[in-house]
Design a protein around this nucleic acid. Structure first.
Lengths: 234, 234
DNA sequence: TTAATATTGTCTCTCAGTGGAACAATAGAT
DNA sequence: ATCTATTGTTCCACTGAGAGACAATATTAA
């Protein structure tokens, strides 16, 4: 069969991407659903023999979101044995009209390298892959339960994102180019899962000298208009 | 052949360990040398089909150091193509009297999961493996050049260790159970690569309420004797 | 035209933590 | 008893954050 031939890919090696987006004040991630089973999973993929791990992840991300040049960070590699459930994978391929033999390499044990991505929710055009029926955004604190160890992968991704948020100044990757201070604060609050003080947040952001101030944003509301900001490109 | 049969191991998957120790005021790591080639490499290994990634790493570490229950942290997975140099691996196996065929699975492409370990330098009894001629400590800023991408692996390990040093309070793992404040400070300085202020360091450590103070250590020197400390087990 | 309202931008006060230095304590040598 | 080297502690100045107050302003209501 030509579908995912073992000659092209490295067996036993997979990757899973936790793609974060921000919309309507909520932090969300992308999940794929296999309708025939009702199962949810992270978007992932496999590594070809002649491509870099990172190339494979970027390609997979582009195929699902249409985006190049995405903020991407590897956070952990999962190598437990609870990952190894051939019957789950077999059912998924069967339900998608791609049945595979019992000795197929895709049913063998896999280690998975976890990446998280931060993208501008508005720029995405979602595209399911060959074996999934849909891909969509899910609120980070209203996730369905996921196959295999994907719940743990999401939790670890979120933990790493929180730890890196201040250190790497990556919050802006979830917003469009120009945004208000309030929007930036909402991103931080959604990621950290806690309210922040408005004045302290503003003071801290401005003191770091990473933001550029632009024109005001007039929304038609009856109050002072906020400035728009962008991250300095240095 | 029975040596590293492909039936027992997951192909394409390896791990490498950066084992940190502290001795005579210097931060050191363990390196293996293949005498016939003069090449140096990190101690690593492969994952058996029926064991967890972490089990494999711990077992490998035990075989080389004789230590169980070591502080261990996964920091990155390396998946570039510069790792793929079959001629290097072939030469190593030939030089160690374990020649392998050109199509042997060990000559194929590998991804490697990097772990770093922190151990008490004094507790180790070093043990070379089947194909390496020696294993020994090397000063972190006087390392020989290493095979494949092992230089990058070491740098990434050191970077991660520095980032985690304060956040995870892991410095004590490089010292014996009881130590003086001066020794702890020396560990921090060796890891961070910079001098710290004595009084600030002491105040910070004591204020964190993680240290237990024990008896004084009389060294015979003509000055005030320092207290011994241990980390609280909580 | 003026006042009211909601939100944003800035300032002040306070307090905790750190850099830097000084001072006190002390084990052994002289 | 005095000196020396090092350790434990305290003090002062500065910085950054929490908390609140106040000023600025875009629009609506009177």
């Amino acid at each position: 069969m030509t579908f995912l031939s073992t000659l092209d890919y490295l067996p036993h090696i997979a990757f899973d991407s936790v793609v974060f987006g921000f919309s309507k004040g909520k932090l969300k991630i992308l999940l794929m659903e296999y309708h025939a089973t009702g199962w949810f999973a992270l978007p992932g993929g496999f590594v070809k023999r002649n491509e870099t791990l990172e190339e494979a992840v970027k390609k997979g991300l582009f195929e699902r979101t249409g985006l190049h040049d995405v903020y991407l960070d590897q956070f952990h590699t999962f190598g437990s044995l609870e990952r190894f459930k051939p019957e789950v994978m077999k059912r998924i391929f069967e339900a998608s009209n791609h049945p595979i033999d019992s000795d197929h390499w895709l049913l063998d044990r896999f280690l998975s390298i976890g990446y998280y991505a931060l993208i501008d929710h508005e720029k995405v055009t979602l595209q399911p892959d060959a074996i999934s029926d849909s891909i969509a955004w899910y609120d980070i604190d209203q996730l369905p339960s996921l196959i295999l160890d994907h719940d743990k992968i999401v939790q670890k991704a979120l933990q790493t994102l929180r730890e890196n948020l201040d250190r790497k100044l990556i919050g802006g990757n979830l917003l469009p180019d120009r945004f208000t201070m309030n929007e930036l604060q909402a991103v931080y609050e959604a990621i950290l899962g806690e309210k922040l003080r408005r004045t302290s947040f503003q003071r801290k952001m401005l003191s770091m000298d990473i933001l550029e101030r632009h024109e005001k944003l007039f929304t038609g509301k009856s109050h002072k208009a906020p400035y728009l900001y962008s991250f300095k490109t240095q």
